[in-house]
């Protein structure tokens, strides 16, 4: 199938907003103090009047979308053939609970229509479409940790079928007190630091963010970071049998979940070159979108960015300078896996 180019990136997380902020964080020049998104940069693209009835989840999406389109040189152009695919693990949780607040506080008959309409899972995609004038096909997906690979798989299909000229793909998840409570109940008191390479012990810290990218087959101008060479999802097996590029380095979605971490160790043979970056963005279902973005930046520069050093006892090698032209990004879920493969341009 077609391998579209990634021509624009729009990462938003605790590290800041935009490629520059992410590069700075990857270079160690800044480190997020908390995995929380600051939405102030959105005012550069949309005035407060335009966003006043839009919930926070959608605003994260709007910021990521604007950044990615700007990075791809598409801002302000004709976007009528730009498809939109939006993935989320859990959807707009804060808004969902705000709607329940209105039911519990005011009764069934006085529930908030604004909160309800923003709580619908495709509301963020709708807001992005309305604000940016995207009228081409639009799809929202929600399947926990598999959401990113699934969305990118669909993007490749749309571009292969020439349904659209470009795809704006985005992934969003937000933190909220209920998620914090769930973490505490499932895993005990939260640690202070997410340690991706501690595979057997729970170190996950909930994160939030949005990560957008523009995919094109025939970009008219400008640079591209990498090619999206592969996107696969399976709902039942423990991991992919083959990637077709086993010697390529791996960006692993290890994000401090002890229930999943050992499966990475079981899957990847000794000597594999690996990197993991969840320490920068936190534990969130769509974390793989950040991994893909970081891998794309690495492929553009010829080397994967450094990450937390591998501890003793892991039989892998740290990925760094890229001898390979490909990078695999693997995310394991409670059941199933999502694999995204990138190739240098």
């Amino acid at each position: 199938m077609i391998a579209p180019l990634i021509t624009g990136l729009g990462p938003v997380g605790g590290f800041g907003a935009g490629v520059g902020a992410l590069r700075n964080a990857l270079a160690g020049e800044s480190r997020p103090e908390a995995y929380r998104v600051d939405l102030t940069p959105l005012e550069r693209y949309l005035n407060r009047r335009a966003t006043r009835r839009i919930d926070r989840f959608s605003q994260i999406g709007l910021l990521g979308a604007c950044l990615a389109l700007e990075d791809a040189g598409l801002s302000g152009g004709d976007l009528s053939r730009v498809g939109l695919i939006l993935s989320s693990g859990y959807g707009p949780l804060r808004t969902t609970f705000s709607f329940l607040d209105s039911v519990l506080d005011d009764g069934d008959c006085l529930a908030s229509p604004t909160h309800f309409s923003n709580s619908v899972h495709n509301a963020a995609a709708a807001h992005i479409g309305i604000q940016l004038g995207l009228t081409a096909p639009c799809m929202s997906l929600s399947q926990f940790e598999l959401s990113v690979a699934s969305g990118l798989q669909l993007a490749r299909c749309w571009l292969a079928e020439r349904r659209v000229d470009a795809v704006l793909f985005g992934a969003i998840d937000e933190s909220c007190p209920v998620v914090d409570y769930c973490y505490r109940r499932y895993f005990g008191p939260a640690g202070e630091r997410l340690e991706p390479w501690v595979l057997q012990r729970q170190t996950a810290v909930p994160g939030e963010g949005g990560c957008f990218m523009v995919l094109q087959v025939d970009p008219s101008a400008g640079r591209s970071y990498a090619r999206l060479d592969r996107a696969e999802v399976c709902g039942i097996s423990p991991g992919p049998k083959s990637t077709g590029s086993e010697d390529a380095p791996w960006v692993l979605g290890c994000d401090g979940h002890a229930g999943i971490g050992p499966r990475y160790a079981a899957l990847l043979p000794a000597g594999s070159q690996v990197a993991a970056y969840a320490g920068l963005y936190g534990a969130l279902p769509v974390g793989q979108a950040f991994d893909v973005t970081i891998a794309a930046l690495g492929l553009e520069g010829g080397a994967l960015y450094p990450c937390d050093p591998l501890p003793e006892g892991l039989a892998w090698q740290p990925a760094g300078h890229l001898g390979s032209t490909r990078v695999n990004c693997l995310k394991l879920a409670a059941t199933g896996w999502g694999l995204v493969g990138l190739e240098s341009v």
Binding site: G91, V120, H121, N122, C138, M139, S140, L141, S142, Q143, F144, L146, S150, Q153, L154, E232, V233, C234, G235, I236, S237, A333, T335, G336
Partner: peptide, 22 residues
């Protein structure tokens, strides 16, 4: 999650996707 649950229930080994387009 509907697609994953159906795939697991019937042990179907293809791609899975749950769409939330209202």
């Amino acid at each position: 999650n509907p697609a994953a649950t159906v795939a697991a229930h019937f042990q179907l080994k293809g791609p899975v996707a749950t769409l939330v387009n209202a």
